[in-house]
Simulated assay, not measured.
Amino acid sequence: MKSCLIVDDSKVIRMVAKKILQELQFETLEAEDGHVALELCKRKLPTAVLLDWNMPVMNGMEFMREMRALPGGKDVIVVFCTTENDISHIQEAMEAGADEYIMKPFDSEILQAKFQQVGLIEE
């Protein structure tokens, strides 16, 4: 089964994403910041990461760079999911290794479409 690590400091966002992803047949894990997420990834890499940008302890960009450096970390699909919607943030995330970018708030259709675009689910 495909797995998705949901990394967001908002419990509500994690809950909404978890519900949607489980409906899409993903096993889900949750982390409230990049540091907790990185520790989970060191134990077992997920298939994908749904990643917030602004979090305490370790932000999304820091996490992504650290996770990408892990053995197999370059194979994980990273989808940023954030309120940072200006072109410079999107460009920075994509150049740093993100596979896709979603704006908050999101819904099931948006999440499903982005996961289809990166090949995680079929149409």
Results as ranks from 00 to 15, higher is better:
40 L>F: 11
40 L>D: 01
40 L>E: 05
41 C>K: 00
42 K>G: 05
42 K>W: 04
44 K>I: 07
44 K>M: 10
44 K>D: 03
45 L>A: 07
46 P>N: 13
47 T>Q: 08
47 T>I: 01
48 A>D: 05
48 A>Y: 07
48 A>V: 10
48 A>P: 10
49 V>T: 10
49 V>G: 00
50 L>G: 02
50 L>N: 06
51 L>F: 10
51 L>Q: 08
51 L>A: 09
51 L>G: 00
52 D>R: 10
52 D>N: 10
52 D>H: 04
53 W>I: 13
53 W>D: 08
53 W>N: 09
54 N>I: 12
54 N>G: 07
54 N>R: 15
54 N>H: 14
54 N>T: 13
55 M>E: 04
55 M>A: 11
57 V>I: 15
57 V>C: 08
57 V>Q: 12
57 V>L: 12
57 V>R: 13
58 M>L: 14
58 M>K: 12
58 M>I: 11
58 M>H: 11
58 M>C: 10
59 N>K: 02
59 N>W: 07
60 G>F: 08
60 G>R: 00
60 G>H: 09
60 G>W: 02
61 M>D: 11
61 M>V: 13
61 M>Q: 11
61 M>R: 05
62 E>V: 04
62 E>A: 12
62 E>G: 11
62 E>C: 09
63 F>D: 06
63 F>H: 07
63 F>T: 05
64 M>W: 01
64 M>D: 05
65 R>K: 15
65 R>S: 14
65 R>N: 14
65 R>Q: 15
65 R>T: 15
65 R>D: 13
66 E>R: 14
68 R>E: 04
68 R>M: 12
69 A>P: 03
69 A>D: 13
69 A>R: 13
70 L>H: 03
70 L>V: 04
71 P>D: 03
72 G>P: 05
72 G>N: 02
73 G>H: 03
73 G>S: 04
73 G>W: 01
74 K>P: 02
74 K>T: 13
74 K>D: 13
74 K>W: 00
74 K>L: 07
75 D>P: 01
75 D>K: 11
75 D>I: 03
76 V>Y: 05
77 I>F: 11
77 I>C: 14
